[in-house]
Amino acid sequence: MFGFLKGKSKKEKVFYSMVTGKSIDLSEVDDEMFAGRVLGDGIAVWPEEDVFSAPCTGTVTTVTDTKHAIGLENGDGVQVLIHIGLDTVKLDGKGFETYVEPGQKVKAGDPLVKVDRQMLREEKIPDVSMLVFIEPNGHKLTKFYTGQTVKAGTSPLVEYE
């Protein structure tokens, strides 16, 4: 009885993919800071599209001046960082267009930023992008959906409890 409530509750304990592409374990990212989980645990995606979306419903906490990283906090107080590409900070915002600002409320799947992936390729900058849990707020990450084709805003990437 009331099994549908269980499913709904579980669904709320999910971070969805921030971009359409192929998910990989953080250890596969060619960057010691991310692969070593220095900022926190997480997952990465090799993108196939230019638009990055909110992986959860919550509030935008950070949009870096260089537009390559966006922070979010969901209703459970879990804080994540979306970091687009490797060494993209050196582009100083070139090739990035943001759609959100700090304090803005977003729903899972809402567009956050668009990146010119063609420009990244021309600059020889890997576009692998990370979803890092910088503050789990007492929650435990329980499942990582690695090695899968994922769709922005709808495919689960990480479950927590």
Rank of each mutant, 00 (worst) to 15 (best):
D25I: 04
F52T: 09
R121T: 15
G77K: 05
T64G: 11
D76P: 02
V51D: 07
E159T: 15
D110T: 10
Q104V: 14
P102L: 15
M119R: 08
I125M: 14
H83R: 07
K140P: 01
Y160M: 03
G138Q: 12
V51H: 06
A54Q: 13
G147A: 09
A152H: 05
S53A: 12
V113S: 05
D87E: 14
I43W: 00
V80G: 04
L72V: 11
G93V: 04
V89L: 10
F4I: 14
V78N: 01
V115F: 04
D30N: 14
E49Y: 04
L120H: 03
P111K: 08
D50Y: 01
V89S: 13
D25V: 06
L81G: 03
R117V: 11
V128Q: 13
K140G: 07
K114T: 08
E73C: 10
G103I: 00
P126W: 06
P111Q: 03
L81I: 01
V63F: 11
I70F: 11
V78T: 05
D110F: 02
A69H: 11
V51Q: 09
V80S: 06
D65R: 12
G42Q: 02
D127M: 12
L157E: 02
E48I: 03
V158Q: 01
L81V: 03
P47I: 05
D87L: 11
T61W: 08
K94E: 13
K107Q: 11
V29F: 09
P47M: 01
G103Y: 05
E101V: 12
G147P: 04
K140Y: 01
K13T: 08
G138I: 08
K6G: 09
K105I: 07
I84E: 05
E161V: 15
T149K: 12
G153P: 00
G42S: 06
Q79E: 14
G85N: 12
D30V: 13
F144P: 05
W46A: 12
E123W: 09
V63C: 04
P156N: 10
P156W: 03
L141E: 04
A152M: 04
A54M: 08
H68P: 07
Q79F: 02
T142F: 10
E73F: 04
F15N: 02
S53V: 13
K140T: 15
L157R: 04
I24D: 10
K10M: 15
E97H: 09
M119N: 09
I84H: 00
F52V: 13
T62D: 10
D92Y: 13
D31A: 14
R117P: 01
L81T: 01
I82W: 00
G42I: 03
N74P: 03
I134K: 10
L72A: 05
F52E: 08
T154C: 07
L91I: 06
V113R: 00
A44P: 00
M33H: 11
M33L: 13
L81A: 05
G93C: 07
Y16L: 14
P102G: 09
E12N: 13
Y160N: 07
D127K: 06
T62I: 14
N74G: 07
W46R: 13
D31F: 08
L131K: 08
N74W: 06
G21S: 06
G7A: 12
E12H: 11
I43E: 00
D25A: 11
W46G: 03
